[in-house]
Design a protein around this nucleic acid. Structure first.
Lengths: 183, 183
DNA sequence: TGGTCTTTTCAGTAAAGACTGAAAGTTTTG
DNA sequence: CAAAACTTTCAGTCTTTACTGAAAAGACCA
């Protein structure tokens, strides 16, 4: 299914099995259920652990290690977002920043840096935003998402309220502690 | 760099070159610049076209086909989101729905369907939301993103306004045309 | 229409990635 | 501390994917 998401087919199948089975499974049961070699399962689980997508636990009266997925789907989303950021986004941003630090040797290079900067800012904006909303309570997050495009009405509302408008005021106002302005 | 994003390394390099060069390039210049065979470039461009990430154009006085990326970075994000949805998300949702339509044969299967339903609803919520906000003007979109976690204050504000509260009221209210409620 | 320039296709090959079984490693237990 | 129970590692093999050059196909022009 979603086997093109940086994680391979086998690993995806293992994860899916753990997710739907809803209880901790030992490696050999996974191998049997999916008809993989024991060592393949071992490697898959190792990768899933490195993504923090499964956790290991010991069940009373059984010496084998058991694995399970987080029980909250939102938790899965949060972890995935964090890991992808750490592994893919951050290194990309870092390379972009390095390139932007170089002195452009000529007009062409200056233009290229301009385009790289645009890309950098875009990625950073998206990343920061996702990081921010991931921190919200699940309850708040779902409310926000359910609002969908309707969110724009809230923004309009905000812009129409003089003290909360998004434009910087020329004369300093008394601090309102509402923090709706953004730098 | 981001070569693990469902698109292979070669294709990524071609796209990056087109993006930073900022002008339409013919296939043979790409092949020369990146040291790929002409046929490899041809295939890469074909894939990029199928993703609608490059467009073909003819330049006066040159018989060769030239390719370029959209000039607006936001446009790139929008196209990427749409295509990924079409290719990956929608088929996944469709499979999930099919599974949910099946009558559970026993208690275990019922539980599994429950978990699949949770996943389905999560994906659908995220997808719908992203679809919705992609439709916003770039200007509005950036405002929203820049707000980051601060968005929660707007939600709180909304919840505190009696006529706009997110809870359904028991007695029907006169229509306010604000549409902030969501079904 | 034939000739020139350009792009696409495709069969074969090269490279990358996934999977396995055997062996080594680790932990628990009598 | 040795045997038993379990897990990990890794070299070799199998499978999948990427890339190439040669040939075919298409477009334009005289």
């Amino acid at each position: 299914m979603g086997s093109r998401w940086g994680i391979n087919r086998t690993v995806g199948q293992i994860y899916a099995l753990l997710y739907i089975s809803g209880r901790p499974l030992p490696a050999d049961e996974i191998a049997e259920a999916l008809n993989f070699s024991r060592s393949n399962v071992s490697m898959g689980l190792k990768e899933l652990q490195s993504w923090r997508l499964v956790k290991l636990q010991h069940l009373a009266g059984d010496r084998r290690e058991h694995f399970s997925t987080p029980d909250d789907v939102w938790q899965i989303v949060r972890i995935l977002a964090e890991e992808r950021r750490r592994r893919e986004i951050d290194p990309t941003l870092s390379v972009l920043r390095d390139l932007l630090l170089m002195k452009p040797g000529n007009e062409d290079e200056r233009e290229i840096q301009g385009r790289l900067a645009e890309m950098h800012d875009l990625i950073e904006l998206l990343t920061r935003w996702s990081e921010d909303v991931q921190k919200l309570e699940t309850q708040q997050l779902t409310q926000l998402l359910r609002l969908g495009g309707g969110i724009i009405r809230l923004l309009d509302l905000k812009n129409s309220l003089p003290l909360l408008g998004s434009k910087r005021r020329k004369t300093p106002q008394p601090a309102t502690e509402d923090g709706l302005d953004e730098d």
